[in-house]
Amino acid sequence: MTREELANKTKKDLTEIAKSLGVKGTSKLNKEELVEHILLLDPPFSANPEDAPLISHHLDQSLNGDHSLYRQPPIPEHLTKVATYGDGEQDIPSSYNETRITLMVRDPYWLYTYWDIDTETKNKLSQRFGGFYHIPLCIRVYDITDVTFDGSNSNYYFDVTVNHNTNSWYINVGKPNRSFCVDLGFIQPDGTFYTIARSNFVTTPRDTVSDVIDEEWMLIEEDFKRLYRLAGLGDGNSSMEMVESLIRRLEQEMSSGAVSSISGQAKYEPKQRQFWLALNTELVIYGATEPTAHVTIQGEPISLRPDGTFTLRFALPDGCQHIPVVAQSADGIDTITMTPIVTKETK
């Protein structure tokens, strides 16, 4: 039931309805509270939600009449008065002063690592190797797939030299479905590797279908290829084709701006021409009469401001417009008609 329907009922009826919906302590509630409870438990759901009279009644009430009806009470000032961003609010630490290296996966072929070295370690290294910034830092990348890594039993490793100006690096490992770990350190003059920090372990994702087949859930190769194709990932099960197809698809999505919903604001630029002109004509009709008068323009009633003035604005097409303005006094005795005629042409 809608608010209106409920409002027309007696308190006794409302109490019955509220009870049937399981509202407790109905005797203590007044009529308005009962309506609120009922609406909360049994939201109005008319078969035709576009019921025009309902909407216009609602709008009459809430737009022109009693604002408090549908509004929450205003938020107390002490709650809304919140300071804006101070200048310092965006200060963030440039370092947390700890010795650590972290490894992340970007895709089947690339890793990302970032690191930091605390002052104490820097000083220690500095003393021992004669100046921290002279140490040729490098990242040692270990492939630790299927091993319990102890620092020396990797499948293979390679080094990436990094400079002191950076504290992060993208590493091209080119190996899907393998596990990796990195050390931050440097090669000592005797050829051994000095580890400053060791990262967490990560595994790159597979870039193609798995070779592991569960006997119970087998499908012949031919059929699987067909399925793969049906899934929209191109003709074979090679990763390149899949990636290409994904890229094509996603480029389309990005260009439609649709991927992450609503963030983009439109920039309207009439394109394709070096120089352009957009021109529109609008007509403003304004006037004043007794505040109580009835005024129509081209036969349609318009509303006056409290002081009896009015303003109307029309987009003006080419052609001729007769615009009869009729004002009638509140008692219906006096009527004044004025009819501007406007002709517009564009050459």
């Binding site: 597979r206 279908v209 798995s210 592991v212 699987f224 899934a231 929209g232 994904l246």
Partner: peptide, 17 residues
């Protein structure tokens, strides 16, 4: 996404369906 299932291991018999 599709490849999350298609590249699952063991190989999924019914693909994404």
């Amino acid at each position: 996404d599709a490849h999350g299932i298609l590249h699952a291991s063991p190989r999924p018999k019914y693909g994404v369906f």
